[in-house]
């Protein structure tokens, strides 16, 4: 339906073809279509390389965010004074869109990979922190008491009870943090980088090839949905089932 309307608008000729390219059927013989560009740029490897670059950056930045988030979260839950200082600060930091950090990142790390990684990590870290500290704080005292009377304490208690009991919180934290990281990397790559889907978008803009821009948008949408639905939603459901919660 939406595709049909798009095609009609494109063919009515209100806008030049480069601004409003058709999706499937070319407007003139041999003309551009979004699907055509998508397929040819996948075959030529342009989009594939860009996707690989973006996902690698994302994975590295996201991993840093998870490690930092879990560490901060644990410290906040464990020590009252960390909660009073860092805990409060994190709430404020969380409300800053990560792209706002970009000027700072460019000055600190130069325009390049490190700057991108920095804003991806910083975009996801705070959400991860908030969620994991909530998870660690809300471990039911029933479990803690049961484990203590059975002889557990210290690191063993953390490993066998505190962490498993917070898994549901941590997983939903991962999912939200992922969404933040995904948005952050697009913004970052668009503003300044070489390689990656965001860069390709910017390239498409500068050569006025909206067919390229639209096909990249499709790729971004598909990747985002797949990871959210296939990875995180499944993980969330599997954990919920295992823990006997209703989804």
């Amino acid at each position: 339906m939406i595709i049909g309307i798009w095609e009609v608008i494109s063919k009515l000729g209100f806008f030049p073809t480069f601004m409003f390219p058709p999706l499937i059927i070319p407007n003139e013989p041999g003309g551009v279509t979004v699907i055509g560009t998508l397929i040819s740029s996948i075959i030529s490897g342009q989009i594939v390389t860009a996707t690989a670059t973006t996902l690698t950056r994302l994975l590295v930045g996201f991993s840093i965010a998870i490690v930092l988030g879990l560490t901060f979260g644990f410290l906040i839950a464990r020590y009252k004074w960390v909660d009073d200082t860092l805990g409060f600060f994190v709430t404020a930091l969380q409300s800053i869109p990560s792209i706002v950090w970009f000027p700072l990142a460019i000055v600190w790390f130069g325009l390049g990979n490190t700057a991108i990684l920095f804003i991806v990590a910083i975009g996801a870290t705070w959400t991860m922190t908030v969620n994991s500290s909530a998870g660690f704080k809300n471990v039911p005292s029933l479990y803690l008491n049961a484990a203590k009377t059975l002889g557990s304490s210290g690191a063993h208690l953390v490993r066998t009870v505190v962490i498993p009991a917070s898994i549901p919180h941590i997983i939903s934290g991962l999912r939200v943090a992922w969404a933040f990281a995904w948005r952050a990397i697009m913004a970052g790559e668009l503003l300044g980088s070489t390689g990656g889907l965001g860069y390709l978008l910017d390239l498409g803009r500068s050569i006025q090839a909206m067919d390229l821009v639209l096909s990249i948008m499709i790729v971004i949408g598909i990747i985002g949905t797949i990871i959210d639905n296939q990875v995180f939603l499944r993980m969330e459901r599997a954990v919920a089932r295992r823990y006997g919660q209703t989804v």
Binding site: L142, A146, V161
Partner: peptide, 9 residues
Amino acid sequence: FQEGGLFPW
């Protein structure tokens, strides 16, 4: 305990 306190995981 009243609620058992079994570890669900």
